[in-house]
Design a protein around this nucleic acid. Sequence first.
DNA 1: GAGCACTGC
Length: 747
Amino acid sequence: MADSKGAKRSSIDGDSFQDSKRLKMVNGGGNATTDPKYNKYLAHQYEDGQNQNGFQSPLDQFQRHQTTAIQAANAEDSDLNPWTNKPHSQRYFGILKSRRDLPVSKQRQEFLDMYHSTQILVFVGETGSGKTTQVPQYVLYDELPHQTGKLIACTQPRRVAAMSVAQRVANELDVELGEEVGYSIRFENRTGPKTMLKYMTDGQLLREAMHDHEMSRYSTIILDEAHERTLATDILMALLKQIAERRKDLKIIVMSATLDAQKFQTYFFNAPLLAVPGRTFPVEIFYTPEPERDYLEASVRTVLQIHASEPDGDILLFLTGEEEIEDACRRINLEVDDMIQESEVGPLKVYPLYGTLPPAQQQRIFDKAPEPLKKGGRPGRKCIIATNIAETSLTIDGIVYVVDPGFSKQKIYNPRTRVESLLVSPISKASAQQRAGRAGRTRPGKCFRLYTEKAFKKELIEQTYPEILRSNLANTVLELKKLGVEDLVHFDLMDPPAPETMMRALEELNYLACLDDDGELTKLGSLASEFPLDPSLAVMLISSPEFYCSNEMLSITSLLSVPQIWVRPNNARKRADEMKAQFAHPDGDHLTLLNAYHAYKGAEQGGGDVKQWCHEHFLSFRHLSSADDVRNQLKRIMETQDIELVSTPFQDKSYYVNIRRALLAGFFMQVAMRESSNSKVYKTVKDDQMVMIHPSTVVSSPYDWVVYNEFVLTTKNYVRTVTNIRPEWLLVCFLSLFVLPFNAQLC
DNA sequence: GAGCACTGC
């Protein structure tokens, strides 16, 4: 068989057109695509890997890891789709032509040569190079998954990217999405038995790895957007580095933007590097001569100046958060009205853009720029004022001017106080370049940096600190344990976190009895890692059958893992608060959440317009329905893990007491005690921090003891989402603190 | 009497 392949190869190289004709004749009977007997996807069932009826595809001539670019291109040019044996559509050839124009296309052979010669490859490509769509297809034509039965995975940091790229590549390959090309993200798996190329979120691949430590389903794993350094990417990189040693047949491609390519190479045993140019337009950078004192004021001024004196083209301004953005929108709108009256400027439409904005309002940024005020007048333009969401997650075409004040809100974690918080901080050089690049997507653009060139060069750090250095790692450590990483200290992360952060995580997991005193995963810990939740929420959920309320804790856990369900628009705060009061439970916010959820489910069953109902009750339909998705997922995990789903009868007077007690099973470390009677100040039990109860609470009469869901550091130290508890309930928890780890060891 | 950058499982 190998001989015949070798012999035919030259003819394929030389004349693919004839070859595809021959193909057609072989299939002359016309039943090849309809008769299941001829389904080439069953080919792997035959011993020699060949189809029994003698059907030949150009791919039969390919030898794994020896494919040439010409061979592959010829197969792509065939009349019949080599992957489906169906005729290629007209659209296919249209797309194929544009694919061949992508910068990466010129380097297909170079890529293949390098891919053949190495196990790990670092691939660097700027925006517009085509790497995300093309490289996985180049790999597909070389890995021949139909022969090996193994998949090619390509990971993305975000769900939308995984979905949209998979759709694009399915079109490019002329196949149905979900068949040969699919995607897998949380709540949605669009892959099937035929799937060969799978786009997925990096977190999803990590989840899979928990049950398949060797990632044995895959022949090639492509990590895309590795420069973003998400927590999941960082863990995957370290994991793959280990797996690569054990599985010499596994190929790994790490794809990244240019910056820091060397760091990736060095990290991956000096892996070879392939760089492909991007396709963007030049962007001229301007700096302020002097530092700006008030960047918000300077931003508004700059936008107005651009509008008054620069040729047409849309503006993108980066600010740090909702409040700032809405403020800037107001100020610009006011000023523009004056400008229009005083001079001959065109209309300017201002759009805010941030993550918590409802999707319909986010979509408005894609509206066309306004028409001139009168015929022949100066053209209108739009100005989008956005958070970091416009840096990576959302791309807006038509932006010609970028205004970059140089700040963003960043998560930081302080292991000493165990508090994660958001802080307005200067961005990195990489971030500044990314922002500037947003001006050159459709034509040459300009970027106005509201800081000096000296500050850019001397004060900005090269790269934003990777997430792993800015997070509480309790969840990560639990995951790593489940992934079979024995030695955390020598686990080779690209940027190892501070030892103190690791210690805090181990300590927290030990308190929760997820790790025993030797740092080994307990049965509880192993169970907890099955849930896509923070360890404390997972432990709370797992323990809830003991309190006869696992159905209710399932709901509360889901509600705590989605964004706030309470809607409180600035112009209707009072009415919103009144509506919330209808759901209020005297014993606290967790129970109030549950009430609102039950009312929502009731409205759903009532059969009316649930969206309308939510709107009237100032509840977020979006977040409630995503809580429902989470709940279904968690419920399935409960069922597969044989955790009982039980409730205390609602009439039973211990219904709510049981729930309150169950909260403590996961959150006994997050309890605060009133400092003195009549005081509004509380003290956390674990480390004596002075805190206040967040004003959003429904709790009106001050309780002596509360359990809280989170600690928020804003103008004051607040604890948010609190429920009244009795101190004697804690005794059981603290007792278990000493007893359980010991028990767990026995498990 | 406050306010949550952005992701992900």
